[in-house]
Amino acid sequence: MSDIILETRGLTKHYGGVHALEDANFTLRAGEHIAVVGDNGAGKSTFVRQITGVEQRTAGKVWFGGDEVIFSGPIAAREAGIETVFQNLALADDLDVPSNLFLGRELIKFNLGPFSILDHKTMRERTQQALTKTAVKIPNLSSAIRNMSGGQRQCVAIARSASFASKLIIMDEPTAALGVQETAQVENIIRGLKARGVPLILVSHNLRQVFDLVDRIVVFRRGRIVASLAKHETDGNDIVSYITGVKGSEAALEKPGLT
């Protein structure tokens, strides 16, 4: 048995003429936390969308838990054990916390097809437990998400992915637009995941955070993976030079006069 959780080979996504993701080879091992960094438009979110089945890839292969997978949609990915916090949050603003936590996987008291009776009570209790487990503090569970701060909303989204038993969690810029304290809270949740041995892919622009939290850093540039470095064999300047293309870009190396 290999300990590889997720592997992609030649993963490619073109939007018409836009080569958003090109030939991505990526490996994640059991318990590993990997950061995905890169400039705006480098293809990080595109990479996440191909793995999670939100979009169908142009080419390439994905293995998850040892099996080759083609997810028909995000639900299929979730059922296989991949929980995702998307960059746009994917919360329903007018619903309360338990409704959001259980959105699309509601607990049911009495099965009547689409008219099944919801089990409000259990969902509420489980939400309370999930929030306690992830140390997220939300004052009023039954208030609509709309009335909460950006940080609280983000914590709900993260608690949702962290609380359902999963084999891999992907977070796309979970702390963008959060305050210092809220960021610290999210980072605590991530440390909790590490302690529990849940593997993580963290898309982030925050290098301080990346060096604090993860084991390995993968750099995207113009749709390609240009570096994959263990934390201890690199530093901030090194990563920045990969992000900006000073290092690692074959095109830059090949062009005469630039070497």
Partner: peptide
């Protein structure tokens, strides 16, 4: 309610 609140969120949540 979920669809009216955020159709995209509803869709990625499996509705």
């Amino acid at each position: 309610y979920a669809i009216g609140s955020n159709e995209e969120a509803a869709r990625v949540s499996g509705i």
